[in-house]
Design a protein around this nucleic acid. Structure first.
Lengths: 296, 296
DNA sequence: TTAAATAAATGCAAAAAATGCAATTAATCG
DNA sequence: CGATTAATTGCATTTTTTGCATTTATTTAA
């Protein structure tokens, strides 16, 4: 038997004209229909249906109740369908958090694309946020590159960001080209974000202490500095690929295999992932298999 | 436990802000709330609430669902009330809120009377309640004396409570009898409810600053103090009529016309007032035209 | 950082309700 | 007036709901 409310059952009985027909239609026992209608009548303290042997028809109040209830139940049903549809179709508002530069370069395009295809969708991009508490800030997905903090949130590994050692030809001309990983310690580096001037990093299994005078938490700024010959940088391929192609920058130790950074999508619930979030992650995934993210 | 649909329960959880609060409000086990919300979420295949320890709040779909569902359920509820109201008999449960003393003196009798005549009816009297939210507390009618707060509720003016200035003969003997309204400022007063010792009040067009040491939010207590000679009081006639009749108290400035307090019945719906509520208001109306409420 | 406090979820057994079958009642039609 | 058919009711069974105790998770306080 199908689960159905007493109110809906009443609608069916009125529409079909008798308890029995309604029962048949809904594959229920007539006795059950009787009992449930009685129960509804008792609750409302009103007689809704005038029974007879041949057929049952609504009383005056029953008719009034029927007309208005039908309308309301239909609206409620429509509402439920709308809600259910959000699982299958990207609608509502999607709020994404991402690292500043990565977001600027890639996420903004993805979101633009989504809105084009799903006019019901509105988007919001939070760049550079620390997203301490996704739920509290209303963030649907956070994109994070690098190691993950402990958290109860759901992390899905989307792909990885290959890295590269780059410097400007001018810098190489002045300082000479490093011949080995160890030699990197004698060079000037441009750093992303870390507040110390000296960074301990492991390259090709060797733990190095790199030094340099420039630190910033912006990939664009780094790029500028590197282009201006301020030092070597170990950064994501996507940020330097064009400069490498035009020769504005050149690779350092190209034969050395560098570890990629993992890229994760972080979101709240595992069970009910809204369509907008699933779609976003799919698109992000596609982006990561695109040109920009191949190793050089 | 009260029978309530999962949808209505969801509304309650959103309104109260957490599963626990909703559970308390509805006198159900929190685990039950949890299970039923989960059941609703499962049926809609959507996560409606973002849970946390302190409080739970709706997700985006949850919010959308809440807004629209609330509207529909209210309409459905109104429909049911309309249907129920077609019955002319006072039945069901009548919950009345009233000021403490007034309720004790008059409302309790009215309710007793109603139950006697309508055995189908059960009654509940909430005394001294601030009745912030009639609907939420399940109050059918609230009786209020004095000025009304702004509200979307229906207020019907039932009548008025005439007032009188009273004092004990002992007090008059000690302090002398005031000869003019202005002289009242030299006297000690006993106050109802106000937290300040000095009350600005307008009597016969003159704005006065009355003072006194006694303040309480109980008419019975006031009565006691006035009888004990603690001061003059400006209060409802009904509370002092017997004492005036026996001479235990006497009027002060009897020739001065005092403004009456209006008495209102406050209830929710204008269109379909249930028989029990109509009856109550009628009876209250009769009471107000009775002896106790004539001017002295 | 850890521990305490508190909300929410879950396992399980008891309680309550819904359900189906069979029998009964009621009403129309021949 | 009896036959027919719909609606109702009694009763046993199944299913669901519910509450308690416990566990899990998360926030606040120390």
């Amino acid at each position: 038997m199908k689960e159905i409310s007493n109110e809906q059952l009443f609608i069916h009985v009125v529409e079909s004209g008798s308890f029995k027909k309604a029962a048949e239609l809904l594959a229920m026992d007539p006795s059950l229909v009787s009992r449930r209608i009685s129960s509804l009548e008792k609750r409302l303290a009103v007689k809704l249906l005038q029974r007879s042997t041949k057929n049952s028809f609504p009383t005056e109040v029953g008719e009034q109740y029927f007309v208005e209830l039908q309308k309301l139940l239909e609206e409620q049903n429509a509402l439920e369908n709308r809600i259910k549809a959000t699982v299958n179709e990207a609608t509502g508002h999607l709020k994404v958090a991402a690292p500043h530069d990565f977001g600027t370069f890639f996420i903004s395009d993805i979101l633009e694309n989504m809105v084009e295809h799903y006019p019901q969708l509105t988007v919001e991009l939070v760049l550079g946020s620390q997203f301490e508490n996704l739920a509290a800030e209303g963030i649907d997905v956070a994109v994070r590159i690098g190691k993950l903090p402990d958290s109860s949130l759901i992390c899905r590994r989307i792909g990885e960001v290959p890295r590269v050692l780059v410097a400007s030809p001018e810098y190489i001309a002045q300082q000479g080209e490093p011949r080995s990983v160890r030699e990197l310690e004698q060079h000037k580096f441009v750093f992303y974000k870390r507040s110390q001037m000296y960074e301990a990093v492991t390259i090709a299994g060797q733990r190095l202490h790199l030094s340099g005078s420039f630190v910033v938490n912006s990939v664009s700024a780094i790029r500028q500095w590197v282009l201006n010959g301020k030092g070597i940088h170990l950064g994501p391929v996507w940020a330097f690929r064009d400069a490498l192609d035009t020769g504005a920058l050149q690779r350092v130790l190209p034969e050395v295999e560098l570890e990629s950074f993992p890229l994760h999508a972080i979101y709240v619930s595992r069970a009910y992932v809204p369509a907008k979030v699933r779609l976003f992650i799919d698109l992000l995934s596609s982006t990561l298999s695109g040109n920009h993210f191949q190793r050089v």
